[in-house]
């Protein structure tokens, strides 16, 4: 049972990096492209389905590994504050940038998307360094690595989603290329998680709690997977939406 819930934790964490990684990556690339509306439009239908993986991850941490949840979040206090504020700013940028006309308004919130994305990538470096016990300075360096990896993933995503457009020249435009960049995006977090696996497993909640969680959650998993696949089937091609 512990192994099952560790597996769910690992899948959610890897899934977050593979999916939200390209949203953050596209956010990082915004200052360097002229096609900002197209780039935001490309990720827009995916963001809500992607960012929720981290919400679920935090939920699983609380439900299945509660002591660890308290220790990790309070132990990494300033980094988690940075992560949350960046996330909030990035999301606000996406929701708000088209809500008023005027180029100043849109530029401001596009800037918020970019700044929030940068903050998210750097904070993740700090989180990973923190849980592995690395010094803070290494966390900054690791954050830069995460940012570069996400930017590469976002760049590949844009090439895949907007074929035949000027944006993301030179990247692989195939689905296989996107899968490869997803694997690259996941790499910075999978290695530390594998190293820490036995520590995490030791902190699992008692089997009574895990049984209840399994009973309530596992029957819904097919629906969760189905909904995610549906998002990809619907929005992989076609006109780029203009809501965000």
């Amino acid at each position: 049972m512990e192994i099952l819930w560790f597996g769910i934790l690992a899948v959610l964490l890897a899934g977050y990096f593979a999916l939200e990684g390209f949203d953050i990556g596209v956010g990082l690339l915004l200052p360097f492209t002229g096609e900002r509306d197209r780039a935001v439009g490309a990720i827009a239908p995916f963001v809500l389905a992607n960012e929720v993986w981290l919400v679920a991850l935090a939920g699983v941490l609380f439900g299945a590994f509660p002591v660890l949840e308290g220790e990790v979040l309070s132990g990494l206090y300033p980094v988690v504050v940075g992560l949350l504020v960046s996330w909030v700013v990035r999301d606000a940028g996406l929701w708000f940038r088209r809500r008023l006309d005027g180029s100043g308004w849109r530029s401001f919130w596009t800037g918020a998307v970019a700044a929030g994305s940068l903050g998210l990538a750097l904070s993740w470096g700090g989180v990973i360094a923190g849980i592995t016990g690395a010094p803070a300075l290494l966390g900054v360096a690791y954050g830069v690595v995460v940012a570069l990896v996400f930017a590469f993933h976002g760049w590949t995503f844009l090439a895949w989603r907007l074929p035949g457009e000027a944006v993301a020249q030179g990247a692989s435009r195939t689905g296989r290329g996107l899968a490869l960049s997803a694997a690259v995006a996941v790499a910075p977090v999978v290695a530390p998680l594998a190293v820490l696996a036995s520590d995490v497993l030791g902190e699992a909640a008692p089997s009574a709690t895990l049984s209840v969680l399994s009973l309530m959650v596992l029957p819904v998993v097919p629906l969760m997977v189905g909904a995610q696949i549906w998002v990809w089937r619907v929005f992989r091609r076609g006109a780029v939406p203009t809501f965000f």
Partner: peptide, 16 residues
């Protein structure tokens, strides 16, 4: 933690 975990997975994940 259990109801909060169930909320994020069974409810909010799908809602979002």
């Amino acid at each position: 933690g259990a109801p909060l975990a169930i909320e994020t997975l069974v409810a909010f994940f799908l809602e979002s």
